[in-house]
Simulated assay, not measured.
Amino acid sequence: MLSLRLYMLQRITALLMAPLVIGHIAVMIYAIQGGLSAAEILGRTQGSVAWFLFYGLFVVAVSIHGAIGVRAVAHEWGGLKGAALDAAMWAIGLGLFALGARAVWAVTFA
Score class of each variant (00 low, 15 high):
residue 1 M to E: 06
residue 2 L to Q: 14
residue 3 S to L: 06
residue 3 S to Q: 08
residue 3 S to F: 13
residue 4 L to D: 15
residue 5 R to L: 15
residue 8 M to L: 11
residue 11 R to E: 11
residue 13 T to W: 06
residue 13 T to L: 10
residue 13 T to R: 07
residue 16 L to R: 00
residue 17 M to A: 05
residue 17 M to R: 03
residue 19 P to K: 05
residue 21 V to D: 10
residue 21 V to M: 14
residue 22 I to H: 02
residue 22 I to P: 04
residue 24 H to F: 10
residue 24 H to G: 04
residue 26 A to T: 05
residue 26 A to K: 00
residue 27 V to R: 12
residue 27 V to W: 15
residue 27 V to Y: 10
residue 27 V to I: 08
residue 28 M to Q: 12
residue 28 M to F: 13
residue 28 M to T: 11
residue 30 Y to E: 11
residue 31 A to W: 14
residue 32 I to L: 15
residue 33 Q to I: 01
residue 34 G to W: 06
residue 35 G to N: 10
residue 35 G to L: 08
residue 37 S to K: 04
residue 38 A to T: 12
residue 39 A to W: 09
residue 40 E to G: 02
residue 40 E to Y: 07
residue 41 I to K: 08
residue 41 I to T: 04
residue 42 L to A: 07
residue 42 L to F: 07
residue 44 R to A: 13
residue 46 Q to P: 01
residue 48 S to Q: 05
residue 48 S to Y: 10
residue 50 A to R: 11
residue 50 A to Y: 14
residue 52 F to Y: 13
residue 53 L to Y: 08
residue 53 L to M: 15
residue 54 F to V: 10
residue 54 F to L: 10
residue 55 Y to T: 07
residue 56 G to R: 02
residue 57 L to H: 06
residue 57 L to P: 04
residue 58 F to G: 01
residue 58 F to Q: 08
residue 58 F to P: 04
residue 59 V to L: 10
residue 60 V to G: 02
residue 61 A to V: 09
residue 62 V to M: 13
residue 65 H to R: 07
residue 66 G to L: 13
residue 69 G to D: 11
residue 69 G to V: 08
residue 70 V to Q: 12
residue 70 V to L: 14
residue 70 V to D: 08
residue 71 R to P: 04
residue 73 V to E: 03
residue 73 V to G: 00
residue 73 V to I: 15
residue 73 V to M: 11
residue 74 A to K: 06
residue 75 H to E: 12
residue 76 E to A: 15
residue 77 W to V: 13
residue 78 G to D: 04
residue 79 G to P: 11
residue 79 G to K: 08
residue 79 G to E: 15
residue 81 K to C: 01
residue 82 G to T: 12
residue 83 A to L: 14
residue 84 A to Y: 13
residue 85 L to C: 04
residue 85 L to M: 07
residue 86 D to I: 10
residue 86 D to K: 12
residue 87 A to S: 12
residue 88 A to V: 15
residue 89 M to T: 08
residue 91 A to E: 03
residue 91 A to S: 14
residue 91 A to Q: 09
residue 92 I to A: 09
residue 94 L to H: 00
residue 95 G to Q: 05
residue 95 G to D: 03
residue 96 L to F: 13
residue 96 L to D: 01
residue 97 F to K: 00
residue 98 A to C: 02
residue 98 A to K: 02
residue 99 L to K: 00
residue 100 G to C: 05
residue 100 G to S: 01
residue 100 G to L: 01
residue 101 A to Q: 09
residue 102 R to T: 13
residue 102 R to D: 11
residue 103 A to L: 14
residue 104 V to P: 00
residue 104 V to Y: 00
residue 105 W to S: 04
residue 106 A to C: 03
residue 107 V to P: 07
residue 108 T to R: 00
residue 108 T to V: 04
